[in-house]
Computed example of a mutant assay.
Amino acid sequence: MWRSIASNALTLLIVALVLAAGAVAWGKAQYTAEGPLESAICLRVPSGTNMRSVSQDLAEQGAISAAQVFRIGADYTEKTSQLKAGAFLIPEGSSMEEIVDIVTRGGASTCGTEVVFRIGVNATEVQVRELDPVTQAYVEVAEFAPDAEDLVVPEKYTEVRATSDARYRVLVAEGTTVWRVVESLKLADFIDGSVEADEMPQEGMLAPDSYEVRAGSDVDDLIARMTAAQEARIAKVWAERTDGLPIESPEEMLTLASIIEKETGIAAERRQVASVFVNRLNQGMRLQTDPTVIYGVTNGVGVLGRGLRQSELQSDSPYNTYVIGGLPPGPIANPGLASMEAAVDPDETPYIFFVADGTGGHAFAETLSEHNANVVKWREIEAQRNGN
């Protein structure tokens, strides 16, 4: 009898072990297999959420087939305690294993709402946009100018500021001045602090680029990142300069690049514009460029908002390149990388003149007579535009 009982118990134990092993194998297969999600989703994980809530949310959205298997898998791989808050893009067909990795990996949110703070040459704007998880393209949902006199902050922006998973990005355009960047950042309510007057970076030393920032981060840290990025670009570009240039230092390169930046916004023209200024410097000619004169009038603060006066074109300002020889004493804006590269590797051309051609670009000329003819054409275009 006891042998029979022992035999039956052993049989039951073996069956139980087989079933358990089968269950483990099934669970592992479920955990690593392609998931049921048919279209990508944006999974929001609020701060303080646990893995149970995440698994239930995923199950309700059809991203996983078994919430319990998801939790057991996270526990078994010791990732439950590593859950991160944020908004995460979950691609279609993601396995439970892949989803656990996504929500525990850390780093910036990969989807959801993004606030883009754009600092332009003449204007600043805030754009709120959301990532469509299916197309993975951003869709604008709100926009406003933070310095508008009749400012009305969109309700959507207020809602976003109250959440913890929104991403923030600061975009600095090529050709901005240091003053413009610093003043604009004062309007960014998601960044703390302000730059004191005696701590202003030197003109030209803030790299135009896109910077991801965290809400509540310090403005000094952001300025330091911009400065470090520009220093790195200057060093790299100067080390790769061509021979025989009429510029003798990285500082002069930055000054020339800033003039190129202000003279054209067309990428294909930068090296041609650079060639004109290099040819003039090589021939001992004055640069005669309006943007430097404007900088001498404004000191990089604000926008001139009118044409230059004859008195300004004849002034003894160190930035008046109609009067002084060579380069002005320093940069007149923050140049982008492309303008710096053009300054140290200009096209080889015979041009020493250029003027607007009416298309947004410029007409280049080798002789004064050719240039004067181009000027006449430009004035005719201006007159037509002004209805004269």
Results as ranks from 00 to 15, higher is better:
9 A>G: 00
13 L>T: 15
14 I>N: 00
16 A>M: 14
17 L>W: 14
28 K>Q: 10
29 A>H: 15
32 T>E: 13
33 A>V: 01
33 A>C: 02
35 G>N: 07
40 A>K: 03
42 C>T: 15
43 L>Y: 08
43 L>T: 01
50 N>M: 03
52 R>E: 10
65 S>Q: 11
68 Q>M: 09
68 Q>F: 12
77 T>S: 11
78 E>N: 14
79 K>R: 15
82 Q>F: 02
93 G>I: 05
102 I>H: 04
105 R>S: 11
105 R>V: 05
108 A>S: 13
111 C>W: 08
113 T>K: 09
117 F>E: 11
122 N>S: 11
124 T>Y: 01
132 D>H: 01
139 V>C: 01
140 E>W: 02
140 E>P: 05
142 A>K: 09
148 A>N: 08
149 E>N: 11
149 E>F: 12
151 L>G: 09
154 P>T: 06
155 E>T: 09
162 A>N: 09
164 S>F: 08
169 R>A: 13
173 A>M: 03
175 G>Y: 00
181 V>D: 00
181 V>E: 01
184 S>C: 13
185 L>P: 04
187 L>A: 07
189 D>A: 10
196 E>S: 14
206 L>A: 02
213 V>W: 03
220 D>L: 12
222 L>S: 03
224 A>G: 14
240 E>N: 14
240 E>A: 15
246 P>N: 06
247 I>N: 00
253 M>C: 07
253 M>W: 06
262 K>Y: 00
263 E>V: 01
264 T>S: 14
268 A>E: 14
270 R>D: 08
272 Q>M: 13
275 S>F: 02
277 F>K: 05
286 R>N: 03
287 L>M: 10
288 Q>E: 15
291 P>E: 11
291 P>Q: 08
292 T>I: 00
293 V>L: 06
295 Y>E: 09
305 G>C: 04
320 N>R: 13
331 P>K: 05
334 N>K: 12
337 L>H: 10
340 M>S: 02
342 A>L: 07
357 D>Q: 07
367 T>G: 01
368 L>H: 15
372 N>F: 05
378 W>Y: 13
379 R>C: 02
381 I>R: 05
382 E>Y: 03
382 E>D: 03
